[in-house]
Design a binder for these strands. Structure first.
Length: 461
DNA sequence: GCATGATCATGC
DNA sequence: GCATGATCATGC
């Protein structure tokens, strides 16, 4: 059959793909599409391949357009309240073959073979609309800028190293910066053999972090880049330092100095007690203009948290996370929960310590939660889900104070659950009425990291 | 008005 | 002195 484009020509394929802009699958794919069983996720790309590009979907290791060296990827966008476009999710690439990757080099890896040039088709996801009617909004080819590719290469090496160390089952998206190893498959229980360990590992695919995809979108859509400051200048060739090394090298000269000394040395007059105080200080030390976001952190979805330690090294406060909704947690599984999602991120902790009345910078630390601790966090989450489901939040009311069954610090060494609200009347609805108090709504709560855990497993390690 | 990061208050 | 319940402050 004669194709409506030349499958050996990159330009021809891209040109044909760009005709999709502003259209939906229903408009471009012809009538036979209606016979297709298009239910379910992941089907968008298959329909596009079969009914628009007119080739049979495959699962070979070559790019979809092998001769032109182009890999076709379709992925959803969402529109924010301010009308800006963002990626709805991470961009899932090819599967990680645990058995083979340990024998590959990055330059000739299956990852690079497949993804060096990606033809991206972004469609606008809207709730309640048939996937055939999503409007294709952005179409362009993407290849990684060299500074990004250097970071991705290191991410790939880390994933490979972990597999070679027999730890494929311990992989986490928080391990890496731009390129992640995300779970993929019908359920979280789909596992595969790994080469250096007998424990079956969840099957995973290479993926680009949602934050990274947002930057691809901004780049394709020609959005202004002025709101970002960079750690690595664009013109950098052959960088030797990792993001971690750059950040630590910028902070290190200020270790054991007070905040006042740091500001004095920087010769910048930032008003200390104002908004975003610690964020400002971080930017100041990293050499980023104060009102700008850090591009590399944004792409890697790094969560920056400052911790103030007491003189005995214990953080003055536990670390809080966003509140959870009672009605949601009872219907979620651990691997799809918000708490799990947060803990799969990479963190940058900035540790200060009280010394008399001054705060002294002790150190910065990149961190993501180790596998075994994730299992502990899961217990806290599961216990929370259980008591909300059963309506057994409140244990007793004494002197007007409600004592709860939420998992406390004694329950678990990693995490606990505590209120996080404007006041006790700041509530979310309960899916099931609380047995003891008969309440239908309850004060907002969230998951916390125990201060002792932060001290022992993050600060002191 | 609410999400989020940060902090306070009190009893054991 | 810490654990737990409760609340504040700021930005979007």
């Amino acid at each position: 059959m004669k194709l409506p484009y030349n499958s050996e020509s990159k330009g021809s394929i891209i040109g044909y793909a760009k005709l999709l802009k502003g259209k939906s699958l229903r408009e471009v794919c012809g009538d036979e599409i209606l016979e297709h069983n298009y239910k379910g996720k992941g089907n968008y790309g298959q329909i596009l391949e079969k009914y628009y590009f007119l080739y049979e979907p495959n699962s070979v290791s070559e790019p979809d357009f092998a001769i032109a060296g182009l890999e076709l990827k379709s992925t959803p966008l969402k529109r924010l309240g301010n009308n800006n476009l963002r990626s709805k999710e991470r961009l899932v690439l090819n599967m990680i073959n645990y058995l083979e990757v340990v024998n590959q080099d990055f330059e000739t890896s299956s990852f690079m073979k497949k993804n060096a040039n990606i033809l991206l088709i972004f469609y606008l996801h809207e709730a309640g609309i048939d996937i055939l009617d999503y409007v294709i909004t952005l179409v362009d080819v993407w290849s990684f800028p060299s500074t990004d590719l250097e970071i991705i290469r290191r991410d790939w090496e880390l994933i490979k190293r972990k597999i070679a160390d027999g730890k494929a089952h311990e992989l986490s998206e928080g391990d890496t910066f731009y390129l992640g190893a995300c779970t993929k498959g019908a359920s979280a229980t789909t596992t595969r053999k790994q080469p250096c360990c007998d424990i079956p590992a969840k099957q995973r695919a290479y993926s680009l972090k949602q934050g990274y995809v947002n930057h691809i979108i901004a780049s394709i859509a020609n959005e202004p880049t002025g709101i970002y400051g960079k750690l690595i200048p664009t013109a950098t060739v052959g960088i030797v330092m990792t993001i971690e090394e750059i950040v630590i090298s910028k902070f290190k000269p200020y270790y054991n100095k007070t905040i006042h000394q740091i500001i004095d040395e920087k010769r910048i007059d930032i008003t200390i007690a104002t908004k975003n105080y610690y964020a400002n200080l971080t930017n100041l030390i990293l050499g980023i203009e104060l009102d700008k976001k850090i591009e590399e952190f944004d792409k890697a979805e790094i969560i920056v948290r400052t911790v103030r330690l007491k003189e005995n090294d214990l953080p003055k406060e536990d670390i809080s996370f966003p509140t959870f909704k009672y009605e949601e947690i009872v219907n979620e599984e651990w691997h799809e929960s918000d708490f799990y999602d947060i803990l799969e991120h990479k963190f940058l902790f900035v540790f200060f310590q009280f010394e008399k009345d001054e705060l002294v910078l002790r150190k910065v630390k990149f961190w993501n939660m180790p596998y075994l601790d994730m299992l502990e966090a899961e217990k806290v989450w599961a216990k929370t889900k259980e008591i909300v489901t059963n309506g057994t939040i409140v244990k007793e009311v004494r002197d007007g104070i409600r004592h709860t069954n939420f998992p406390n610090k004694k329950f678990n060494s990693v995490s606990h659950v505590r209120p996080h609200a404007t006041n006790a009347k700041d509530t979310f609805p309960l899916p099931n009425r609380d047995v003891v108090t008969k309440l239908n709504d309850y004060t907002k709560h969230c998951f916390w990291l125990n201060s002792s855990y932060v001290r022992d497993e993050i600060y002191l390690k």
